[in-house]
Amino acid sequence: MIAFGLSIVESEPYRRFSGPGLRRVMEADSELYAFGSVGLTARTYNLILDAAAGRDDLEGLVLVHPHAQITDPSFCAKARQVLADPEVALAGGVGASRVQTLAWWRSPAISGPLTHHYHEFGEGEFQGFSWVRPEPGSGEVGAVDGVLMVLSPWAVRNVRFDDSLVHGYGFDVDYCLQVRAAGRKIVVADFELTVHDELDLIEKPEVWVEAHIQLAEKWEGRWPGVPPDTRDWKERARRAEAEREAARAMAFSRELVVDARVEGQERELEEATSSFPWRLTAPLRQLNKARLDAAARRRASRS
């Protein structure tokens, strides 16, 4: 039996995104553990793991973020296939090798066919996690993103999320590190998934920094697959401070480039719509819009 679990903070994302996806892919005997959040996602997930661990027929537990919609009609078959390898304890939709900080995406990443649906700027879709710049593909990685985590029965029964990571970020990376420290494998599989998320992906950047520090302190010198950093603290501090300032400057530069790009487009639109003939034909467009709106209302009332 393949079970599904969610930590739900608000009902709306579940109703709109993850719920419809689960209804499409759950099998007749699938169990759904939709638990209300008890603060940290790590803590809620552990409650789900405790519940699922007692099922003798468990083949896998799929932990889904409420904003993630599984769109893969073969999802369960693919999950079974990747978990058929007894060495594999965890699978996900996107991940990276050589993970050595909370920012797993700074290492080379690979991704299955994921989609990012954003709702700002008139809505739209990008390739999922395009900001990570992943290579398309599947295979073994050091960590997967927590938006989708497919756990083997072994993982469900033997590894728990660390709820001492109190800042909320990094529970997924930490879980992956624990799995790898226990000698098991993590893979990215070609699950089809749409993530409905904002374009600004770290909601609380200051808290994220604290979480980064806490995770670094926990795993210092023992990140699986990564040789320990032999530099002394002063050297590390110097280099990191320099790289931080460089990264900030690059971020600022990108903002300028964004503004320049958008301004160019806005000028073009302004020029297109501010001409006299365009203004002259405005009543025609208003009339057409009213006609289309009325037609839409009629369709809605019929359905």
């Binding site: 900080t101 995406w105 994220w208 990191a240 990264a247």
Partner: peptide
């Protein structure tokens, strides 16, 4: 600094 560096890299990508 390592944490703030990674956050700044992310910010650049999100722009």
């Amino acid at each position: 600094a390592e944490a703030e560096r990674d956050r700044a890299f992310a910010k650049a990508r999100w722009h």
